[in-house]
Design a protein around this nucleic acid. Structure first.
Length: 733
DNA sequence: TGAAATTGTCATCAG
DNA sequence: CTCTGATGACAATTT
């Protein structure tokens, strides 16, 4: 992306709801049997449909339908395809939603496999089935493939629950299995959690991706996050869905989250941004592929029309400011993006002057070698991506709802930068493009962006006003350094050097490398530049979610005029941090502040981890309890069954002995032998009242019959028989 | 308005 | 000795 193509004033409108609208109309037509041109016969039952739709979704239909010439063709499906299996698939083809229950999931999967719904197989069943049947069938029966397998594997060794609990949106009632295995419990647990984040089920808008929790930490449940979501008009993200509805998996969501290049990456202008965009997109894909082990498979669920309406309304409010464009707002879950190690490493809210708009994005902060000067610690938990690119989308604001990344950040502390560079450069890309386009940004554009930022990002927009306040002045300086910066960026993208981000400070020289938009801030204000840059200048933009103490910290950080990013204080390793302090001449007050901040931040993270562990522990214990309960019920049933058997056997033996006694006219000594083969639970005396009298004539037997204290010397019975007689394990049953 | 949940911070201990 | 992580306790904030 050495050079961006000159920007033109051509506006391109891309409707993000068009496809879903078309699909909805097609579904309506199907239900009314309008314009349907094919009949599918399954088990004698006919289904009307559009051949183009079927062929688009199914390889089977592609081949079959291509051979059909006339309208009104009838396709009879193989016997292996059942109605129960086909009908959900048909609906899926028209709605992108697959509804199924545990009972028929195998049928659906089988049908999908036969009919060539490969996306479903990969994205859905391969992930779900092992969970569904983990206790009853070998999970190898349902091998995970592709993305799910890879993505879920990454952290599974350490914390499966952490992965799964966040990635599935399943309905509790429908999916929750009997908790006889931890894995199954897992699924049940997921359901509980996921319901909260599940969005309205009826929406088919593909522009909205529900916010799945990015990590195991239930960030979505946090009040602060809820506040953030509310501020973003995204409350609907977490509207509780009816728990009685069957499992609904949205194919788009699956693909979106599992695909190597999630749309969350927000690189949507690759095709029009010239070769740079394309190559960068590839880089992202590669990076994400490499970082698969840290990614999770997200099968999140529903999309809320209500939610997107809120966002869209916001956009439409400013629509009038665009002469001919309708503004679409994408609300995207940032999983894919933040799953990138660099983004997970140091989520920061970076006010990067935006390309035709604003980009408030994560700027990864990782190691000393590639620290980002952007970001403030107050936004480590999540941040917001607002992209406005009139070149590619007319006007679109993408609001990514990132999530807790602390865990991943910790997990990747040791990770090399290879996987980092992709996401890192992703931000850089956007930043650079933003800068490059900023010069052409009109006042109207800024106004629109600012409006969106204010409305959508009350929290993530910490630096927004700062950003916008600077935008006009920055745009001036952008022009001078743009080409060089982009050239530099391109080189760095290729070489994957760690200092490639134009917003990064070269730690070794402690000079800001950015010569463009932030020049005045980085160099012009000397030491205070970076700090100010990170913290934002506007007190109003201080994140509400971080609390007053955090705001106070931010303010103090500004006052301290630290010559480095406040994020470094927290994110650097011990050695790097000490090295950094050595290289700086800090006042006692500054040192005290830095150490205090580092201590508190570290402790904050530790507390979060600690609490998460507690929750996990509680969850595991609940799983264990359920498992033990199931086991107990199973044993009780077995006990009952065995008791019944014992009674029956006892009765039979009694009858038999009585018969023998009567017919053989046994003598007392003979009865003595017989008693040795009786059980305490079924004594010989119970066979017949006369036996006691007979036995009483034999003094050797009186004690034995009463107590059944037989020994080997007494009867010389085989040990197995003795065990039967003397065993006291019956109480265990 | 009060209870519950969440989160940050401090103190302390152990490695 | 210092640093770091874990964790209980407390307080502030949010729901």
């Amino acid at each position: 992306m050495a050079v961006l193509a000159p920007r033109s004033s051509v506006f391109t409108f891309e409707s993000t709801v068009h496809s879903s609208h078309v699909l909805r109309r097609l579904d309506e037509q199907r239900r009314r049997d309008t314009l349907c041109d094919v009949t599918v016969v399954v088990d004698g039952q006919s289904f009307r449909a559009h051949r183009s739709v079927l062929a688009s979704c199914s390889e089977y239909f592609t081949h079959r339908i291509s051979a059909l010439a006339q309208h009104g063709a009838i396709i009879t499906l193989p016997q292996e395809v059942t109605v129960a299996g086909f009908e959900p698939l048909l609906k899926f083809a028209y709605t992108s939603k697959l509804l199924f229950g545990k009972d028929d999931v195998l049928e659906v999967r089988n049908s999908a496999s036969i009919l060539g719904f490969r996306d479903l197989d990969d994205a859905c069943f391969d992930f779900l089935l092992p969970k569904f049947f983990s206790s009853t069938q070998d999970s190898a029966t349902f091998p995970r493939k592709t993305c799910c397998k890879k993505n879920c594997k990454g952290r599974s060794s350490k914390d499966d629950s952490a992965i799964n609990s966040d990635d599935i949106l399943l309905d509790e009632k429908e999916v929750k299995p009997v908790a006889d295995s931890p894995f199954q419990q897992e699924v049940a647990f997921l359901c509980n959690k996921s319901v909260n984040s599940q969005m309205g089920s009826q929406s088919s808008l593909s522009t909205v991706t529900p916010v799945a929790e990015g990590t195991s930490y239930p960030v979505n449940q946090g009040p602060k996050y809820r506040k953030f979501q509310l501020a973003c008009g995204k409350e609907a993200c977490f509207t509780e869905k009816s728990r009685n509805s069957p499992v609904t998996l949205n194919k788009d969501d699956c693909e979106l989250s599992c695909s190597p290049c999630s749309s969350s990456v927000n690189i949507k202008n690759e095709s029009e941004a010239g070769p740079s965009g394309s190559s960068f997109s590839n880089l992202i894909r590669q990076s994400k592929s490499e970082a698969n082990d840290t990614r999770k498979c997200v099968i999140d669920g529903q999309k809320a029309e209500a939610e997107v309406d809120i966002i869209k309304r916001e956009a439409e409010e400013v629509q009038g400011k665009w002469s001919e464009n309708k503004m679409d707002v994408d609300v995207e879950e940032d999983t894919g993006f933040s799953d990138l190690p660099p983004l997970a490493s140091g989520l920061s809210t970076a006010p990067c002057e935006g390309s035709s708009g604003l980009i408030l994005h994560h700027c990864p902060l990782k190691t000393l070698s590639d620290p980002a000067i952007t970001g403030s610690p107050g936004h480590k938990r999540f941040s917001m991506v607002i992209t406005e690119d009139i070149k590619t989308r007319g006007a679109g604001a993408q609001v990514s709802i990132p999530h807790e990344v602390e865990e991943e950040r910790l997990a990747k502390q040791e990770k090399a930068n290879d996987g980092i560079e992709g996401g890192l450069n992703c931000s850089m890309e956007r930043a650079a493009m933003s800068v490059s386009n900023a010069r052409e940004r009109s006042a109207v554009e800024r106004e629109v962006a600012e409006h969106l930022a204010k409305r959508l990002g009350s929290d993530g927009s910490t630096n927004f006003q700062d950003l916008n306040a600077r935008s006009s002045s920055d745009s001036r300086s952008v022009q001078g350094g743009q080409s060089a910066s982009l050239e530099r960026l391109h080189v760095n993208l290729s070489s994957s050097t760690s200092t490639s981000c134009p917003f990064f400070i070269d730690l070794e020289s402690n000079k800001c490398l950015w010569k463009g938009a932030e020049l005045s801030e980085c160099e012009g204000t000397s030491q205070s530049g970076v700090s100010s840059f990170n913290s934002g200048d506007d007190g109003d933009s201080e994140t509400e979610t971080e609390g007053d103490s955090e705001a106070f910290t931010q303010e103090r950080a500004r006052q301290m005029q630290l010559p480095f990013s406040v994020d470094w204080i927290v994110d650097l390793s011990r050695n790097d941090f000490q090295q950094l302090l050595k290289q700086q001449v800090l006042t006692h007050e500054q040192l005290e502040f830095v150490h205090d901040m580092r201590r508190r931040s570290k402790n904050r993270l530790a507390a979060q981890r600690c609490r998460k562990r507690k929750l996990d522990c509680i969850h595991n214990l609940q799983c264990e309890i359920n498992k033990l309960r199931t086991e107990r019920e199973k044993l009780m049933t077995e006990r009952s069954h065995l008791s019944q058997l014992k009674l029956t056997t006892c009765h039979n033996v009694s009858s038999l002995c009585q018969k023998v006694c009567n017919e053989a006219n046994l003598q007392p000594d003979q009865l003595q032998v017989l008693t040795k083969y009786t059980s305490p639970d079924c004594p010989l005396s119970s066979f017949s009242p006369h036996i006691d009298a007979l036995l009483s004539q034999s003094p050797l037997l009186t004690s034995s019959v009463g107590s059944h204290q037989y020994t080997a010397s007494e009867g010389g019975l085989p040990s197995s028989s003795r065990d039967t007689v003397t065993g006291d394990g019956r109480q265990q049953l």
